[in-house]
Simulated assay, not measured.
Amino acid sequence: MAGKFEVFGDATGKIRWRLKAGNGEIVAQSQAYASKAAAEKGIASVQSIAAEAKVVDLTNATN
């Protein structure tokens, strides 16, 4: 089963989205948006940039 984005209202009345893997695990969740349209724009942004996003390993970075 493919992953999916779910759009939902949070406890404060704001709109958020979460990305679920095919097994139902949440793999990402958004910030709070004021409107459903803004949340949908956030989803579109993630969809367009994620495939080409680089992975930056900061686990060995010094402070």
Rank of each mutant, 00 (worst) to 15 (best):
K54E: 13
F8L: 09
S48G: 13
G22R: 06
A37Q: 14
K14T: 08
N63C: 04
E6G: 00
Y33F: 15
F5I: 11
T12V: 06
L58I: 13
A53L: 09
K14A: 12
T59M: 12
K54S: 08
Q31G: 07
K4A: 03
I15R: 08
A28K: 05
S35C: 00
V56H: 09
N63T: 10
A37C: 05
I26G: 02
G22Q: 12
V7C: 02
E25A: 10
E6Y: 00
A51N: 10
Y33V: 06
R18T: 04
A37T: 15
I49C: 07
W17A: 03
A38T: 11
Q47V: 07
S48E: 15
E25G: 06
A50E: 04
R18P: 03
A11E: 13
A2D: 14
N60Y: 03
N60Q: 14
R18W: 00
V27G: 03
K41G: 03
G42R: 04
A32Y: 02
A32H: 07
A28T: 07
D57Y: 10
L19Y: 11
A44H: 08
A21C: 02
I26T: 14
V7H: 04
I43R: 07
L58A: 09
A53P: 00
G24Y: 01
R18D: 06
M1L: 12
G9I: 06
G9S: 12
V55G: 05
A61Y: 12
A38Q: 12
K36L: 09
V7A: 08
N23A: 05
E52R: 12
S30K: 00
S45D: 14
A53F: 08
K36H: 12
S45W: 13
A44D: 15
A11G: 07
G22P: 09
G24H: 01
L19N: 04
K14W: 02
A28E: 05
V56I: 14
T59F: 08
G13H: 05
A50V: 14
A11T: 07
I49H: 13
E25R: 08
T12Q: 13
Q29E: 07
E6C: 04
F8I: 02
G42I: 10
N23P: 05
L58Y: 12
G42T: 10
L19F: 14
K20F: 05
A37G: 11
F8K: 02
A32W: 09
A37H: 09
G22S: 12
N60E: 13
G24V: 01
I26A: 06
N60D: 15
D10W: 07
N60C: 01
I15V: 15
T59K: 08
A39L: 03
G3W: 02
L19C: 04
K36R: 14
I49D: 10
G24K: 02
M1V: 11
L19V: 09
G13I: 04
G3I: 09
F5C: 09
V7M: 04
K54D: 13
Q29G: 11
A21R: 13
D10R: 05
G3F: 00
V27Q: 10
G3A: 09
Q47I: 10
A51C: 02
A21M: 03
A32S: 14
A38H: 11
I15G: 03
N60M: 10
A21W: 03
G42E: 03
V27I: 15
K4N: 13
A61C: 01
A28H: 06
D10F: 02
V46W: 12
V56N: 05
T62N: 14
Q29H: 08
K14D: 01
Q47F: 01
W17S: 04
